[in-house]
Simulated assay, not measured.
Amino acid sequence: MNILWDFDGTIFDTYPVFARIMKQVMEEDISEEYIYAQLKTSFTHAVKHFNLADSHIQRIIARTNETPADHFKPFKGVEDILKSANKNVIMTHSTRAEVMKILCYYGWEHYFVEIVTIDDGFPRKPHVASYEYLHNKHTIDLAIGDRLIDIIPAKELGIKTCLFQNNEEGADYYVDCYEGERWDN
C-alpha cells in the first residue's frame, strides 16, 4: 500500500507545542485548549480568529523553528504503519527544514520516498495539485490526515481517505489510534 500522509497532527502530535507557543506570543488569557481547537482548523484560521499581526506570526514561526525536535512526539503506533507500507509520502504546509529536523531526530526520514512541503510551491491544501503530483508519481492508495483539507484533494482524485482523530463526515475510514492498526494490503 502506498500512503500519502499529512505531517502535523497526523504523524506527529505537534499542535500542543504550536498552541503553547501561540499562547506565549499572544500574552492573553486564552486557554491552550481553545487555541489548539482553532489551530486544528488551520494556522491561517487561527491567525484570523485571534487577529494576529505580522509581528506575532513571525515570532510564532521563529519560536517554532527554535523548538527542539524532541518536543514534537510521534503518535503511538504510527511507526508500525510506516514500516508496513510499500511507500510513504508526505504533503505538508510545514517547511522542509522543520519536517526534516523532526524526522531526522527520530531516524524516520528513510520511511519516506518523497516529501512535499510548502517550500515546493504547490498551492495550499485543499488544492489538488500537490496530491495529483504525488499520485501520478507514486500511485497513492490511501491519504491520511487529521483535517478535512487533508482528504479533500485525495477524494477529488478517487484515492481512499482516512481521518485521524477526527470524525467529520467525508472520509472512507476513521482511526483514533494507530496502535494495532495495519494497512499492508
Score class of each variant (00 low, 15 high):
Q165I: 12
P126I: 03
D80N: 14
T67W: 01
F12P: 03
D150A: 07
E156H: 11
E181C: 13
I159L: 10
S84D: 15
G180T: 07
R182S: 14
H56Q: 09
E114C: 06
W108F: 12
D119A: 09
G107H: 08
N185Y: 12
I30H: 05
Y178N: 07
I144H: 00
D70F: 14
F7D: 03
I140C: 08
G107Q: 07
D70V: 10
Q58C: 06
P153A: 10
H49V: 12
L82V: 02
A53K: 15
N136M: 12
R96G: 06
T14A: 02
L52Y: 03
A69N: 09
F18I: 11
D146F: 08
D29A: 15
P74C: 11
N65Q: 14
E179I: 14
N136Q: 13
I35S: 12
I30P: 04
I60P: 00
L134A: 07
K101P: 03
L163I: 05
K160G: 03
F18R: 10
N167H: 15
D13N: 15
S84Y: 09
I159A: 08
M100T: 08
P126T: 04
Y36E: 15
T10E: 04
I118T: 02
H110C: 05
S31R: 01
E33P: 10
E33T: 13
E181P: 01
S130H: 07
E32T: 14
A19L: 03
D184C: 13
Q165F: 10
M91E: 11
I102N: 02
R63P: 03
D13E: 11
N136F: 11
H110I: 00
R59W: 04
T44P: 07
D120S: 06
Q24I: 08
G77P: 05
I57G: 01
Y105E: 00
K76L: 14
H93P: 01
I90K: 01
E32M: 09
L52G: 00
Q38F: 10
N88V: 06
I3P: 02
E32Q: 15
H110V: 05
I115G: 04
F7A: 06
Y34F: 15
T41A: 05
V78Y: 04
K76E: 15
A69K: 07
D54K: 14
I3R: 02
V99H: 02
H127D: 14
Q38R: 14
A46Y: 06
M22K: 09
L157Q: 00
T67N: 06
A53H: 12
I115F: 00
R147L: 05
N185M: 11
F12S: 07
I30D: 05
K40P: 02
I151L: 03
I3V: 12
Y111S: 04
E168F: 09
Y34W: 14
H45Q: 08
T139Q: 11
M1H: 09
R124E: 12
I81V: 15
L148P: 02
V17D: 02
Y34T: 15
W108N: 00
D176F: 05
M1F: 08
